[in-house]
Nucleic acid binder design. Structure first.
Lengths: 348, 348
DNA sequence: TGATTTTCCGCAACCGATTGTGCAATCAAT
DNA sequence: ATTGATTGCACAATCGGTTGCGGAAAATCA
């Protein structure tokens, strides 16, 4: 079975009494070659299952047809969704994806960036680590004429095409939905002050409240550091112990929301009737717990797709094409953790 | 910044007044080259940041340094753990990983297999789709001298190295732990009859019970089809409605266990005091729910590592090395869903 | 000193496909 | 019939390393 020698152009040429160059051109229907010869060659190639040697083609064209993907961590629903989108879109255009993890550390990020540089990828998609505050190691790609696209966790210090989620609008939707469902005292457990996502979500929260003519007290804003379930639990306790406790809690993340719900359940506070809860990210577990968790869906798959689309555009059309920023919608998913109200007008 | 022309051996040779072949050999410290010349060349190369053109090297050596990885689905904690292990091990040896999804469909599996074949990967790691019952499309790899390693979801019809988890021992541990913790009436919600994993776990369940001198009635065995939370809920209801309901339920999967716990909570049946629950797989969500879920950990990362190790061995040492099967342990993780008992001797 | 071995390096083919250039044969035009 | 344009294909260089072979210079030996 194992044919020692893969069929090459030379073999076909010899067999057909043609020159290698003629065979090569015939296979791509070059106008210089007569219809008859083209048919002859193509028939022969098909019959003998000729497959061009990718290694040779890539070498000649000086292209690897590989794109690098640097993400903070692989075992994570959101990021693996992104990966999935990238792979699908890349494969569709004949590219492979080399996945690297930064583990949220800038040192690892530098290391894998260097590795990708050495392996001569045709382009790179990156979602920055939490630690990354300067991007000199990424600018080397640009210096080497390797296009880069940033996705989700981006830096404005680095001028590339970007694909992000509209955190503001997602948060705005969530909080508006609270209000339309009859909740009035809405608290927010937010993320770190130096993270763009958190700030945008907070902004969405604040704007929605303001837009509806309501207001919030500073007591209603809690700042997470690690975004853990424990923090959610703890802040829920603090919030519910206030003289005027909230009747709704918007959480920066599903995991935090879970901690909140755990506390509420333990204290026999009814969700959604006494307190409504909305998270962010649409983790699988939100569908599983009870009551099921309302959340804002981040379209990871679509982020990956779009980022790849932009990257391939750069690769094909050159570095000088404009650096657009694509903003994808983050949409509210209403589940049981928010009470139904006839006031809801289906606007969402 | 962007140096149009990457430094090549020819450049170094010209600059140093040497032949290209000499430079090439010097860089790999070939004994034919004098110490002085080697130093001269290496210093120059380092100073000017010479990086060999991987495309050229790969072409010459007829190697891609790519390995393919075919898995059912990417967005899944277990499989992404495997991926993570594969990538780490592969990168450590200078290989890249091309990830493909079969989406649990044999047609997709065939498609990506063909794609990997055409892209001339140096080797393939595969975890079969649920639909796969014949492996002719995979034997093409062997015919093309491309080594294959199977991981987790394997077929005995295909003679390759394999890496699997000891489902039997994991289940045995779980059920033994139930017994040592004082549970006596242990039910099992199992998976499909035609899936090897399910059968092994069932076998572990049955053997553990038998070994402790206990027995189970057929009423205590429920067979899932889709392994969903809903099925868990439903079967829990059936089990708890029996004349003699169980005091412990061993579930084939964490998700099923979750459905069970949901039912028990709704009926105010205390976990773990009235009924103990153990799942399988160690999903993240098991740590998050309350009570936290005891489960059997499947070492996905280690599976990936080991599979890659075996594959690289094949790639380097040739196809004729023996096809071993590596069995990794699946270990019990005790959490709150099983009651503590002094009878537990720390054996686990 | 001449013969032989060893040391060190250059020459050139090669991997397989791509592509610019050149040239014969065919065809059209004057 | 002679010139000019067009068609259809072959030749050969090229991409950047790798590697077998051969040969000059230096070192060792007789």
């Amino acid at each position: 079975m194992s044919e020692k020698h893969q069929l090459t152009l030379k073999d076909i040429a010899r067999e057909l009494g043609l020159a290698v160059s003629t065979v090569s051109r015939a296979l791509k229907s070059h106008p210089d070659i007569s219809k008859e010869t083209i048919k002859l060659v193509k028939d022969y190639a098909e019959k003998h299952h000729y497959v061009p040697n990718l290694l040779a083609v890539n070498f000649r064209k000086s292209k690897t047809f590989n794109i690098g993907l640097i993400i903070p961590e692989l075992v994570h629903q959101f990021f693996s969704s992104i990966i999935s989108g990238v792979i699908k879109e890349a494969n569709q255009h004949g590219y492979n994806v080399m996945i690297c993890q930064s583990n949220e550390h800038v040192d690892d990020e530098k290391k894998v960036a260097q590795a990708l540089l050495n392996s001569r990828v045709d382009g790179v998609i990156i979602s920055l680590s939490n630690e990354t505050d300067e991007v000199s190691h990424l600018k080397e790609f640009i210096a080497a004429d390797i296009p880069v696209v940033q996705v989700d966790k981006i830096s404005d210090l680095f001028d590339t095409p970007k694909v992000i989620v509209n955190d503001f609008a997602g948060a705005y939707q969530a909080v508006s939905h609270f209000i339309k469902s009859g909740y009035r005292k809405i608290a927010h457990i937010r993320g770190r002050l130096n993270v763009q996502h958190s700030n945008e979500r907070f902004r969405g929260y604040a704007e929605a409240i303001k837009h509806e003519g309501l207001s919030y007290s500073e007591d209603y804003i809690k700042v997470c550091d690690q975004l853990t379930e424990e923090e959610g639990y703890e802040f829920a306790e603090q919030l519910m112990s206030l003289p005027g406790p909230p009747d709704a809690i918007f959480c920066v993340t599903d995991l935090v929301a879970l901690g909140v719900m755990k506390y509420l359940r333990e204290k026999n506070i009814q969700v959604p009737n006494q307190v409504g809860v909305i998270g962010f990210s649409n983790w699988k577990l939100g569908e599983i717990i009870s009551p099921t968790l309302s959340t804002v869906h981040q379209p990871g798959y679509e982020l990956g797709e779009k980022a790849t689309e932009l990257l391939l555009d750069k690769i094909v059309n050159g570095m000088d094409s404009p650096n657009q920023t694509v903003v994808l919608n983050a949409d509210l998913i209403v589940r049981e953790s928010v009470k139904n109200s006839p006031a809801v007008d289906g606007h969402y």
